[in-house]
Design a protein around this nucleic acid. Structure first.
Length: 639
DNA sequence: AGGTTCCGGGG
DNA sequence: GTGTACGGAACCT
């Protein structure tokens, strides 16, 4: 029996002898930061079936399908799980292979005795992380034994350990970890418009890192060999050697995270195409595997097994709100300095002309990677914290929309409280039209002019607070099923209410019913007891944030303080995103009623606060959603 | 007005 | 890979 503590970098599964084997990619904690791939063949795919009537009838039907050879499964179990907090009997059906789930999904769903399938679209590796309470980028404890080799792992990396788990891994701690990071960037000689990998060679590969490597690999640069300012140039003889040197640099320095800017769409596809011309493999995977492009929505993510590739461009689009997200613009936003800029269509001229222009091109290439790394060091800590909170792989989290981060956090939470997660809603264009759009926060257009003596007022996390205090959650929403009231009519009447609403009605205390909180404008009813799933998850987040902030105050260690500060920011972001899960289509906890109730209560609160301020002699100049600016005019004060 | 297409970043 | 997705601006009809 061998034990290892590793930091879990990434996870996937492969098929071995027709069965799935999870692969945990990590680096061993301790002096020797060996890489390690842990294998676990004990985890089994499953989903839940909600019977439409008698559960035994459903089981009979499933067994019948199996006898006919139309369905294969390994196990049927009756289980009690909560569905919107109501204990409900489900059938848990287990399969041999994750692929059996999409394969047999439809045939099961088509059975008359089956009402719904649940948790049938949770990727296998995510299921594994959730069910074992594992957190990526944190420390795990492994028990098992070392083995010499395993199918699909063809690495010539001597320091790689292959580890076969004898029991499920455990989370050792979720403390801050250090990672070896490297940024890179290509420059291409493209005299005819955008670079074309069939013709246009790579002329420079810039590299910066937090492990002491900072250089530009290029086929030119001899002319600066006596220029001490230019000692970052690594001169090679061909593009082939340039690419080989890049690969060697990544491998030899044991890089955990490789960072580019728009590298999903430009640098890695280009590098792959050029490498192919020279017969070079981009085999940077921990298991010796090649780069792989994975379709993720409208992007093609460049990925390696166990080497984490972050495309900072995608991260920045979520990290801050800007009109443009060029590297120059983002860098300026952070550091207030302009970057060296060489227009893309003139790079070849600088290259061809040599001399001072070539020198500037080298500097530009280095500046690009230095800037990329600097921005990464500013932003990745937050994403690492989000990874540990959300509990899904780092590369996934850096590419996820914030709403998805919230959703996966909730999926994990649901597992912890024994809830079966809702399916993704299947909204058609027709539904959306019928539904109409939600009214947002209250906005009072600013009064034009220069104002003095302004006071600012805002609600601290208005929406999260409302979700908790009014228990806004689909599982405690009372749906009135009047037979004469179709869903469509409900929406219609809802809208009439908004248009004809009177101020008095708005401020009246409609939500003081004994058992329910009743939303203004639409009068949606939310039970006061029990606490809804989303409010409870949100409260956990806010409590956690409070605890982190207290730890922050208590420590004098600046490194710990910084890391805790990032942690509480991540929690704040997640809390603020939670409102979004109600309003966005395709999300599992989508609830238009909840989204409407939140903004309606929000409008009520801000208006009430404004009224009160005005009674004290403040004149509101501008208001938006959760706060306003007001000017003190004592003559306005009501006696 | 209401629908549909295009685009982001990169050289 | 227990896949197939974004959101706003610009441009149609």
């Amino acid at each position: 029996m061998v034990k290892r503590n590793i930091v879990l970098l990434d996870i996937d599964y492969i098929t071995y002898e027709e069965k799935p084997v999870m692969r945990l990619f990590g680096k061993v904690k301790g002096e020797n930061s060996n890489d390690l791939i842990a294998l676990d063949d004990s985890f089994v795919p499953y989903l839940y079936i909600l019977p439409s009537g008698n559960i035994d009838k459903s089981i009979k039907d499933l067994e019948e399908l199996k006898r006919n050879g139309d369905l294969e499964f390994t196990k049927l179990e009756k289980v009690i799980k909560k569905d919107f907090q109501v204990p409900t009997e489900f059938i848990k059906i287990s399969f041999t292979h994750p692929q059996d789930v999409p394969k047999y999904r439809d045939i099961i769903w088509d059975l008359d005795s089956v009402k719904q399938l649940r948790e049938h679209d949770i990727p296998f590796y995510r299921r594994y992380l959730i069910d074992n309470a594992l957190v990526p980028m944190a420390e795990l404890e492994l028990e098992g034994e070392l083995i010499d080799s395993f199918e699909t792992i063809n690495s010539n990396n001597d320091s790689l350990e292959i580890f076969k788990l004898s029991e499920p891994p455990k989370t050792a701690n979720t403390d801050f970890q250090q990672f070896r990071m490297m940024s890179f960037d290509l420059e291409v000689r493209n005299p005819h418009g955008m670079p074309n990998p069939e013709e246009d060679e790579i002329i420079m590969i810039g590299i910066d890192s937090n492990v002491g490597i900072r250089k530009v690999i290029s086929t030119k640069g001899d002319e600066f060999s006596n220029d001490s300012e230019m000692c970052f140039i690594e001169k090679v003889d061909s593009e082939k050697e340039m690419i080989e040197s890049f690969i060697k640099t990544v491998k030899e320095n044991n890089i955990d995270i490789i960072i580019g800017y728009n590298s999903d769409l430009f640098d890695f596809p280009y590098l792959k195409d050029r490498a192919k011309i020279w017969g070079i493999d981009l085999d940077l995977g921990l298991d010796g595997s090649n780069i792989k492009f994975i379709r993720r929505g409208f992007n093609n993510a460049a990925t390696f097994k166990g080497l984490l590739h972050v495309d900072l461009y995608l991260v920045m689009r979520r990290y801050m709100s800007l009109d443009r997200y060029t590297l120059e613009r983002v860098y300026f936003e952070f550091f207030g300095e302009e970057k060296i800029d060489v227009p893309g269509d003139r790079i070849y001229e600088f290259w061809d002309n040599g001399g001072n222009e070539l020198k500037n091109l080298f500097k530009y290439s280095l500046d690009d990677v230095v800037s990329t790394l600097k921005i990464a060091q500013e932003t990745l800590p937050l994403n690492l914290e989000l990874t540990r909170i959300v509990g899904q792989p780092f590369v996934d989290v850096t590419r996820m929309a914030t709403g998805q981060q919230a959703e996966w956090y909730l999926v994990r939470k649901a597992y912890e409280v024994d809830e079966v997660v809702p399916n993704k809603p299947n909204m058609t264009m027709k539904n959306i039209k019928e539904r109409g759009s939600n009214v947002g926060g209250y906005v009072k257009e600013p009064e034009i002019g220069l104002h003095e003596n302004l006071v600012q007022f805002d609600f601290k996390s208005l929406y999260p607070t409302l979700i908790i205090s009014k228990n806004i959650s689909p599982d405690v929403l009372v749906k009135e099923n009047n037979s004469h009231n179709t869903k469509f009519e409900d929406f219609e009447t809802g809208y009439d209410d908004i248009d004809n609403i009177k101020e008095e009605e708005l401020s009246s205390d409609m939500d003081n019913d004994e058992d329910y909180y009743i939303s203004p404008e639409h009068f949606f009813k939310f039970k006061k007891e029990p606490q809804g799933f989303i409010p409870s998850a949100l409260e956990d987040i806010l409590n956690e944030r409070f605890a982190v902030k207290n730890k922050m105050k208590a420590t004098d260690n600046p490194v710990l303080k910084k890391s805790l500060s990032v942690q509480q920011q991540a929690l704040k972001r997640l809390a603020n995103t939670m409102y979004g899960v109600y309003g966005f289509l395709r999300f599992r906890w989508y609830s238009f009623e909840c989204a409407q109730a939140i903004t309606a209560w929000g409008r009520q609160h801000i208006k009430k606060a404004m009224e009160e301020a005005e009674a004290y002699g403040f004149k509101v100049i501008y208001a938006d959603t959760d706060g306003f600016y007001a000017k003190y005019l004592p003559e306005m004060k009501k006696e």
